[in-house]
């Protein structure tokens, strides 16, 4: 049973304001661990998550644990057990941390009252003691990292079958990148995660599998290690840092340093170094 993928996507196409942003995306997310969704800037990673959530106009088939969810409204998709952590956290700034979390609490699926299991509450408390201490603070006054934790906590409070997490380390300080990565690693032990991540160090540490998008399509899928340990494929598929004119041999010869600079196309250098150090 555990080998069956939790999410199967076939021929997913999506539009934003009438403009096609995804073309025939097909992918599978295994029922355990982290699957990284990778690709150059602007290839449609965020759009893929939004399309899965029903936040943008989409067509194609999406099956969650074998049940089709592609015709469901966003809130119904979520109620089927999908947690979403959007790209820019999207916490409710005028609400307190406690209110943000309270809003996220869903009824237990089988018609129960709003509320979450004590285990989940404990998990969130263990993972994010910082934000529990700040329950009565307005989320808008939190730092970026704390907001990210609120966003993750909102998704982790409920018993989900799958989490969709969009660039959780974007713009965070190096220390926080490490904390968020730790939290995700623990979260992935209880729920499978589809993770969009530009920071390849984080992706390398967390992801068991990887799917690569290019031009709105899937161009690679397989074990993350196969891809991420192969510099030439990383450059070819993700294009990080590499200038169009640079040859592959150059990359290979400068193995380690080149790797770092690639990551830094999205993240500041110290950030990356620290994240590397924590791994």
């Amino acid at each position: 049973m555990s080998t069956r993928p939790v999410l199967v996507v076939r021929g997913l196409t999506a539009r934003i304001a009438g403009q096609q942003v995804l073309e025939d995306v097909s992918l599978e997310v295994p029922a355990r661990g982290v699957t990284a969704l990778l690709g150059r800037n602007g290839v449609g990673k965020t759009s893929t998550l939004k399309a899965l959530m029903g936040l943008i106009e989409r067509s194609g088939t999406i099956e969650l644990d074998g049940e089709p969810v592609d015709r469901l409204a966003t809130h119904k998709v979520v109620q089927r057990g999908v947690g979403y952590v959007p790209e820019d956290r999207e916490v409710f700034g005028s609400l307190t941390v406690a209110e943000n979390l309270r809003l996220a609490e869903r009824s237990g699926g089988r018609g129960g009252r709003h509320g979450v299991s004590p285990e989940r509450r404990e998990l969130v408390g263990d993972l994010f003691p910082d934000i529990i201490d700040r329950s009565s603070q307005r989320a808008g006054t939190l730092s970026g990292g704390q907001q990210q934790m609120v966003a993750l906590a909102r998704a982790l409070l409920n018993e989900n079958r799958l989490l969709l997490v969009d660039e959780p380390t974007k713009g965070l300080s190096p220390r926080l990148v490490g904390e968020v990565t730790d939290a995700l690693e623990k979260a992935a032990q209880v729920v499978p995660v589809l993770l969009v991540e530009q920071n390849l160090t984080v992706a390398r540490r967390l992801a068991g599998d990887a799917v690569v998008l290019d031009g709105g399509r899937v161009v690679h899928a397989g074990p993350a290690a196969d891809l991420l340990d192969d510099e030439s494929r990383v450059v070819a598929l993700l294009g990080v840092g590499g200038e169009p004119g640079q040859s592959q041999s150059q990359h290979q010869s400068q193995h380690q340093s080149q790797d770092q600079s690639q990551d830094q196309s999205q993240h500041q250098s110290q950030q990356h170094d620290t994240a590397e150090a924590t791994s």
Partner: peptide
């Protein structure tokens, strides 16, 4: 709870739906 949903919705409606709320 409705009040909470309304306050959150005024700020960011699509995120409210993305928390599973109609």
């Amino acid at each position: 709870r409705f009040g909470l949903v309304i306050r959150a919705g005024v700020e960011n409606r699509s995120m409210v739906t993305a928390l599973g709320i109609d």
